[in-house]
Each structure stands twice: as C-alpha cells, then as structure tokens.
Amino acid sequence: MKTTRSTAPAPTAQDEYTVDVFTVVNGAPVQWRVDTRTTLLEALRDSSGLTGTKRGCDQGACGACTVHVDGARVVSCLMLAAQVDGRQVTTVEGLIDEEGRLHPLQEAFVRHDAFQCGFCTPGQLMSAVCLLREGRAGSDAEIREYMSGNLCRCGAYDNIVAAVREAAGGGA
C-alpha cells in the first residue's frame, strides 16, 4: 500500500482559517498572512526568518522563546501571531543598535561566558533586558528569582547572574 501522495494539496485552507497580521518587529513594519493557529514564535521564525528566537518546549515552560511585546517579556510559543496585531515586537535580532553594536548585556554575556551551547541565550537575553528595565537586579537573589523563567540546561546560571549584575552597574 502506497499512501504517498505526489500531487500538490488542494487549496483547502479556507480564508476563515487565515489571518492577516500587521505588526512592528524590531522597529520595522511587518505583515504576516498566516494560518490562524500560527504562534508568534512560528511567525517570527518561519514567516520573518528571525530564527534567533528558539523553540525549547513549545509549552511555555523553558523561556527559550522569550521576546518583548510592547516592551514586556512574554513567551512567544503561548501567544498567537494574531494577538500581536498592531503591537510592537522585539526579538534578539533587535538588540543590536543601528551601527550593529552589541547591547551591553550581549557584551556582558560574552565576557562572563553566560552560555555554553547558546540555545537558551536569546531568551535569557530578552528576559534580562526586561529584568533591568523592571528594576529587578537589586541583588543576586533577586536576579536569580526573576531569571528563573529561563532554563539553561548547560547550567550557566552563575555566569548569567554575573553578566546581569555587571550590566545593571553592580560590577563584575
């Protein structure tokens, strides 16, 4: 029995299962026409090619897909692309400035070796950028608590704390 179908699929994807999303990603206007099921994570990676945002669990439990929506950190795997219509999205690709210089946290992550395999790193950075903005770098314990939504299986936590502390102005 051969169940392979070689012909192209019939265009059964009806319009009501498609949604147009107008959003701003890293400062640039973006339009996505996507399956309504598409998560923000999938739209960023598959529709916009912004693969810096990683899928680690797709269940909101690892933080690897953390991005900013209207300046607040969220996990993009548990948000529909349709839900960011009209909102501002920032991904790790948006952390560098116009001249291509690294964000101070990116530099601190490199200097403190705050990653190993690097897979959780974009999510850690996006979380840490917000953490500083939220004013939650008052102590190592506070940094640890408010970075605990980002798993690092390589175990770079101590170095992440050091990098965040330094970027917060607390010294290395």
Binding site: G52, K54, V92, F115, G118, P122
Partner: peptide, 21 residues
C-alpha cells in the same frame, strides 16, 4: 579568552539544525 563563537550566540545568528530551511 572569550568564546570565539560568542557573538554568534548572543545575536541569535548561530545556525542550529532547527533554524535550517
């Protein structure tokens, strides 16, 4: 010394298998 692949990893430009299209 700093990890030579560090800049790729902190900018999200290091290509993993899941990023290949």
């Amino acid at each position: 010394i700093d990890r030579v692949d560090g800049p790729h990893k902190v900018t999200g430009t290091a290509p993993y298998a899941s990023d290949v299209t």
